[in-house]
Simulated assay, not measured.
Amino acid sequence: MALDSPRLLRADAARNAEKIIRAAREVFTEQGPDAHLDDVARRAGVGAATLFRRFPDKAALLRAVLDQRFAENVRPAIQTAAHHPDPASGLAHVLEAALESVAGDYNVLAAARSAGVLTPATGQEFFAALDALLARGQHTGAIRADLVPDDLHRIVVMLVSVLWTMEPREDGWRRYLALVLDGLTPTGARPLPCPAPPPHCTPAHPDTEADAGHPAVPGLSSSARSSPRARRAKPSVCVCVVSRATASSRSRRDTPPRWRSP
């Protein structure tokens, strides 16, 4: 029995980590960036010391939550799309899975943004997969030939920004995804009017965005920038190192809406 003890301890630690990650997703979904780790420990049914032994701070826990959600929701779609006989359908499947995940985990992403978890590396696997799917689709003629990877990256940011204009857990975003997907096909496509602009990073203004806790789609740069007044008035997108939707037609002054579970 003594020989098996380390193995049993490792299994117990793995079970506790799984319970903590699941509980964290629930608590951050309900409370957003203001969630406390003590609440997570209580929800998981473990002591605070157990939680902090595995996850020393909020950022470490949120990284684990995002990794798990990506592994469960997006990576399987990427793997399926890589072997899909229709590259355009495969790309559509990946975009749908990603947007569905963002919509379902909006407050988790807000907390991750607030904790400084979202970095260029966060979205590297996702955007690399999009680039490969785009190239495959263009090679077979299923996707218009004049798109470049930056176009597709920016389209993802545009689609995520739509979530600020509606209840994210509703399916309204699917309408705009369908419109975008029609625009990616070569059928009836008109030539694009100019080359894709080069990526550009505009630092976040410390008084308007650094602590705002806006959700993000990691891995992009963009030249989009809106003033605080414009951010309060209409949806916009601002991206620096990571891309993030930064406005809502119904947002409060400097605090984004946090959608609570019923």
Rank of each mutant, 00 (worst) to 15 (best):
A81E: 07
L220P: 05
A13W: 06
V160S: 09
L109I: 07
E167K: 14
A128Q: 11
L133F: 00
S243H: 07
H83P: 08
D38M: 09
H205Q: 14
A49W: 10
L62K: 03
V157R: 08
P87K: 12
P85I: 07
P168Y: 14
T119Q: 02
E125Y: 05
R63W: 09
A189F: 02
I155L: 11
L159K: 01
C238Q: 11
R258M: 09
H214D: 14
G219F: 01
R75E: 06
A92Q: 09
L37R: 08
P262M: 03
D38F: 01
D146Q: 00
C201I: 15
L99V: 01
P120C: 04
W173E: 01
A135D: 07
D151K: 06
R144V: 05
V242A: 10
M1I: 13
K234E: 10
T208Q: 14
P186W: 03
A145R: 07
R190L: 15
A35D: 03
C240R: 00
Y176Q: 02
P85Q: 07
L99Q: 10
Q79V: 12
I143V: 14
T119V: 07
S261D: 13
E209T: 12
G116Q: 06
A247H: 01
I20V: 10
R53H: 13
G45A: 07
H214V: 13
R53I: 00
P206T: 10
R253V: 04
V108K: 06
R258I: 08
M1H: 13
V180W: 09
R175H: 13
L181V: 08
G45H: 04
T50S: 13
L130W: 00
T208N: 12
F70Y: 14
H153D: 02
N107A: 05
F70K: 08
P218S: 08
Q138K: 10
L220R: 11
L130M: 03
A44S: 02
L181G: 00
F28M: 09
W259D: 05
S226Q: 14
V94R: 11
D86Y: 05
R42E: 12
A35C: 01
G32P: 04
V237M: 09
Q79H: 13
V162D: 15
P120Q: 10
A212F: 13
A216T: 08
L9P: 06
P235G: 14
Q79K: 15
H93M: 12
V40N: 01
D105V: 03
V162Q: 15
A17G: 10
D34H: 09
T187D: 15
D131I: 02
F70T: 07
E26T: 12
